[in-house]
Design a binder for these strands. Structure first.
Length: 417
RNA sequence: GCGGGUGUAGCUCAGUUGGUUAGAGCGCCAGUUUGUGGUACUGGAAGUCGCCGGUUCAAUUCCGGUCACUCGCCCCA
């Protein structure tokens, strides 16, 4: 075991990366607030059944992508591969089904045992929103609008296309699935190996196969849209009308399907062409069936999840974290006084860095690394009269002022929060 | 889980048709400057050539395996 390298599919977030991710997350929370979504969090692990029941044993996520283990008490535990099931579990656990709708936003790490690629990690981070209670297509529009707004605020919407589809309600979907399987069964031997497997496990997935031969066959397959019943059509129509009126551009994508079983009606993904095969940057849909799969009441819900790493890769913003003031203590015997002064400035809201070793020149060099605009030089000569040197690092101008007057100095006062 | 590419200093990369002490730029450290940063100049440290094995008088170089990263498939955020 090579402990000096991180576990495959995990990585350290050094300050530059972490700052970029914080920006994505903070932007999401800000946009979420404008929609009335409240920040919340669920545990990072749950009983394995929380994920196994709704996702289905056959799904890839559960059958081969989860980090599952038995804890010391013999309980089957799974690190969450996504957060929607956890949130729904929390709503039911806490009796919140009595006070609907519930609107949540969350952010945190997820875990999937997959082959890592760019924008695909084994520990990765998602931000997501869930709107639980309403069955109206306007709720779907609100979720999609929130996603679009987030991407727009991050400056990446122009690189993304919104793909939209309707899977219909259970009745429509079952009818379509039957028709699709009947059609594809005729070409069973011509389908790719993967798709032959899907024919049994998840036939709708064959629709977006990238295999050339599969695509040919799929081209002649029945269309999902033709199997939507009136309720499903009305839902889709209201959603698209709302999106149109709000100027949210989308392309109807009849081949867009979701991997997880509990989705119905709306499925959507914001896809970018800038991340190779991991183009989906934000995706979601309606999952009216989830609550019942967990043993709760019938509970309509819709939401999205976005990949923080993927969004961070698209955001070119480099937020440098600067420190306001470099405090250079020029005489060893004044170290403790320097610490006291730094403490006083910090209490006033300033960020202060005070090097402990090195000569004056070496200490001053640190100013550039931390991005400080001002250096304070504390030496015995001026300390004797209660003064300190204030050096503006932009132009090198230095003046000596009373320590008591520091916080009102024209260069320093604006930095106090 | 399957297929392709890559692996030389902290970073970005040269290089060796197999042959003595493996190079550059950036970064880092020190000095020029013992109470004043950036720039400049000078000097310095730093590499099991990913790891293990094989072939060979000799392997960083060739071969095999392995690990990691990366791209694609699968699946998704």
């Amino acid at each position: 075991m090579k402990i000096l390298q991180p576990v495959r599919g995990t990585s350290d977030l050094l300050p530059a990366d972490k700052a970029r991710q914080n920006h994505v997350i903070e932007t999401a929370k800000k946009i979420g607030r404008t929609y009335g979504f409240q920040d919340m969090a669920t545990p990072i692990f749950e009983f394995t059944d929380v994920f196994r029941r709704p996702l289905g044993d056959a799904s890839d996520v559960v059958s081969k992508e989860t980090y599952s283990f038995e804890d010391r008490g013999g309980t089957e535990i799974t690190l969450r591969p996504e957060n929607t099931a956890s949130v729904m579990r929390a709503v039911i656990s806490n009796g919140l089904t009595q006070t609907l709708p519930q609107k949540y936003i969350y952010a945190g790490p997820m875990f999937r045992y997959e082959r890592p690629q760019k924008g695909r990690m084994r520990q990765f981070h998602q931000i997501g929103v869930e709107l639980i209670g309403p069955s109206s297509a306007l709720a779907d529009a609100e979720i999609i609008g929130c996603g679009a707004e987030l991407l727009s605020e991050l400056g990446v919407l122009e690189h993304c296309t919104l793909h939209l589809n309707s899977l219909g309600d259970t009745q429509s979907r079952d009818a379509y699935r039957t028709a699709l399987v009947a059609f594809l069964a005729q070409y069973k031997d011509d389908l790719s190996i993967d798709s032959q497997r899907r024919l049994v496990q998840n036939p709708l997935r064959i629709l977006d196969s990238k295999d050339a031969k599969d695509k040919e066959i799929v081209a002649g397959a029945p269309q999902l849209a033709d199997y939507l019943n009136d309720v499903s059509k009305a839902h889709y129509d209201l959603l698209t009308t709302a999106l149109d009126k709000a100027n949210i551009a989308f392309v109807a994508d009849p081949l867009l399907v979701r991997g997880l079983d509990y989705y119905c009606h709306t499925a959507f993904e914001f896809i970018t062409d800038q991340l190779g095969a991991q183009g989906t940057v934000l995706g979601g849909g309606r999952y009216d069936g989830l609550s019942e799969m967990l043993g709760g009441p019938h509970l309509p819900a819709v939401g999205f999840a976005a990949g923080v790493e993927r969004l961070s890769l698209l955001v070119d913003k480099d937020e440098e974290v600067r420190t306001d003031i470099l405090l250079v203590v020029m005489d060893t015997e004044l170290q403790a006084d320097g610490f006291a002064l730094a403490s006083q400035l910090r209490r006033a809201g300033l960020s202060v860095d005070m090097p402990f070793t090195g000569n004056i020149s070496k200490k001053l060099k640190r100013a550039d690394k931390i991005g400080a605009g001002i250096a304070l030089l504390l030496g015995s000569q001026e300390f004797a009269t209660g003064e300190v040197q204030v050096k503006s690092l932009g132009d090198g101008e230095t003046q000596t002022i009373a320590i008591d007057a520091l916080l009102t100095h024209p260069l320093i006062a604006p930095l106090c929060e």
